[in-house]
Amino acid sequence: METDLKKQAAKCGYTTTEGLVLTDGKLTPRGKLSVNHDYDVEVCAFSQVDQLLNKAGVYQIFTDDGIPLKVGIATKLRARLRQHAKSSQKYLKFKHEGTGVQPSDVRSTRSILAKHLYFDSSIAPAYDLTTEEGRRKFLQAECYLMITYTDNRESAREIERLFEAKKMFRYQGTVVKR
Rank of each mutant, 00 (worst) to 15 (best):
residue 87 S to Q: 01
residue 17 T to V: 15
residue 4 D to R: 10
residue 39 Y to Q: 09
residue 2 E to D: 14
residue 33 L to V: 05
residue 32 K to A: 05
residue 53 L to T: 08
residue 47 S to M: 10
residue 14 Y to H: 12
residue 163 F to M: 02
residue 53 L to Q: 14
residue 124 A to Y: 02
residue 145 L to N: 05
residue 64 D to Y: 10
residue 153 R to S: 04
residue 23 T to H: 11
residue 22 L to D: 04
residue 42 E to H: 10
residue 113 L to C: 09
residue 4 D to T: 07
residue 15 T to K: 13
residue 43 V to C: 11
residue 146 M to S: 14
residue 112 I to W: 00
residue 139 L to Q: 00
residue 87 S to R: 00
residue 27 L to P: 02
residue 12 C to I: 03
residue 116 H to F: 15
residue 133 E to N: 14
residue 154 E to D: 14
residue 58 V to L: 07
residue 162 L to H: 05
residue 63 T to H: 01
residue 66 G to A: 07
residue 58 V to I: 06
residue 70 K to C: 07
residue 143 C to K: 02
residue 166 K to D: 09
residue 78 R to V: 00
residue 37 H to K: 13
residue 150 T to V: 14
residue 1 M to V: 07
residue 40 D to R: 13
residue 60 Q to P: 00
residue 152 N to K: 06
residue 37 H to P: 12
residue 26 K to W: 10
residue 164 E to P: 00
residue 153 R to F: 08
residue 167 K to V: 12
residue 99 T to A: 15
residue 113 L to Q: 06
residue 81 L to G: 02
residue 26 K to V: 12
residue 98 G to S: 08
residue 92 L to P: 08
residue 43 V to D: 05
residue 57 G to T: 04
residue 141 A to D: 13
residue 156 A to G: 15
residue 146 M to K: 11
residue 125 P to K: 12
residue 135 R to S: 07
residue 33 L to N: 09
residue 8 Q to E: 14
residue 43 V to H: 03
residue 28 T to E: 02
residue 145 L to P: 04
residue 22 L to I: 07
residue 129 L to S: 09
residue 151 D to K: 15
residue 3 T to L: 09
residue 61 I to R: 03
residue 93 K to I: 13
residue 124 A to R: 02
residue 156 A to C: 10
residue 85 A to V: 08
residue 111 S to L: 07
residue 81 L to I: 05
residue 92 L to R: 07
residue 155 S to N: 06
residue 149 Y to L: 09
residue 65 D to G: 04
residue 151 D to R: 14
residue 76 K to G: 03
residue 10 A to R: 09
residue 167 K to P: 10
residue 177 K to Q: 13
residue 23 T to I: 07
residue 20 L to V: 09
residue 80 R to H: 04
residue 170 R to K: 13
residue 17 T to C: 15
residue 165 A to N: 03
residue 28 T to R: 03
residue 161 R to Y: 02
residue 165 A to W: 00
residue 35 V to T: 12
residue 18 E to T: 00
residue 156 A to E: 07
residue 65 D to K: 02
residue 11 K to T: 06
residue 147 I to E: 01
residue 153 R to G: 01
residue 78 R to T: 02
residue 6 K to R: 15
residue 119 F to K: 00
